[in-house]
Design a protein around this nucleic acid. Structure first.
Lengths: 208, 208
DNA sequence: CGCTCGGTCGACACACCGTCGAGAGAGCCG
DNA sequence: CGGCTCTCTCGACGGTGTGTCGACCGAGCG
């Protein structure tokens, strides 16, 4: 809960490896069970250090999670930047962007799932995720607005509000699918359906 | 984690009140902080019994949550049944149904928020919620299919898949809005935007 | 040589959890 | 009325996990 200020900058050569090891071990452990069922003991054991040594690197296991989140988000942003900019086929373009989320979240399903669990208890996590999500929401809203100005998307809908809703939908749907919760979609169906809903919401007519 | 079989049926007069009190107290406490930060001590204290007395009624604080979830879900189902059946204005009808979710989840925002937190750690909760959600998903899918047969909705989209995605969206979006997370919609805007997205997805053309 | 300083460790105090066995009190039965 | 049962309550115990603290070790540097 407190501030995790000791590490990061102060860390020297071999310590850097340890820090990385801790983060890796946690992601590995999260593949098998939720954060609440993983003790600091186990993480430290996996990284081959003592429990108290763990606290030299991180203030808590939640702090490690923050690092894990950062890794994943950075990966998304990199791959998002690599999407060929603005093909003249909107559906393909949105699909390509959505594929990035499906792929990266899928590759880090442990982190994705833990996010929902820990968000409630870890303010820093909630804030950090909010910041990153806000970035994508802005991007989406800007693109929608551009499509509206171009006349391809109807001007009826509020670009920003729609963007918020669609991004939130992604998060939940992907997490549910990846963890195999009961009413959820098989991963291969995911991309198609998400693209359908996004395009409908953006280009479709909301008033039948 | 174990089976909560002792109470429910075995409980007699005054004990029933206590049980109710426990559930009420937890919902009240959840308004101020997440489940993980609430101890059994506090719940028991709030209900004016000792900690061990608590364990006579419930196997754990998670078990209480299950009761809380049940209450809320039942309320949704009741109000859903009261929605005037099938007006000939689809948008109004979907809006009325969505309003039920927004209202009831809003009235029990503590429970809604805790769901996401505890789902990861409490299998019973995940299962129970999944069952209830599946009910709504079925209902939605059936209605979409009916609209397709009637020719009002395009037959392009997979009714069931769309239904899963839309219902998942609701859950996340409403929770985010009610707990005031950073990128989220103000509650009063919620209903309109959700209705837009639902109607677009169901009646709109997903291929621009 | 001795000092600092990054890194490690064992031990401690604390909080919470779940359980157990020992009752208290109300109600029915003979 | 006296005893029995059955619901409900409590204090205490053992266990697990957490976060912190002070001592220590070894490498590099003046």
């Amino acid at each position: 809960m407190s501030t995790p200020q000791r590490s990061r900058r102060a860390v020297r050569p071999s310590g850097d490896d340890r820090q990385r090891a801790i983060v890796d071990v946690l992601e590995e452990l999260l593949r098998s069970r939720p954060l609440a069922e993983i003790s600091v003991d186990e993480i430290a054991g996996g990284a081959e250090i003592s429990r108290s040594a763990f606290y030299f690197y991180f203030a808590s296991k939640q702090a490690v999670l923050l690092e894990l989140l950062d890794r994943m988000v950075r990966e998304v942003d990199e791959r998002l930047a690599a999407v060929p900019s603005r093909v003249e086929q909107p559906r393909e373009w949105w699909g390509a962007c959505l594929a990035v989320f499906v792929d990266v979240f899928g590759a880090h399903r442990a982190v994705t799932a833990t996010l929902a669990e820990a968000r409630a208890t870890v303010p820093e996590l909630r804030a950090e995720w909010g910041r990153r999500l806000a970035g994508w929401v802005d991007l989406t809203a800007a693109t929608i607005a551009a499509e509206q100005r171009r006349g391809r998307a109807g001007a009826v809908v509020d670009a920003r509000a729609t963007s918020v809703v669609l991004n939130a939908m992604n998060e939940r749907v992907i997490a549910a699918s990846l963890t195999g919760e009961e009413p959820s979609l098989p991963p291969q169906q995911l991309l198609v359906v998400l693209t359908d809903v996004w395009c409908s919401a953006i280009y479709g007519t909301p008033r039948p």
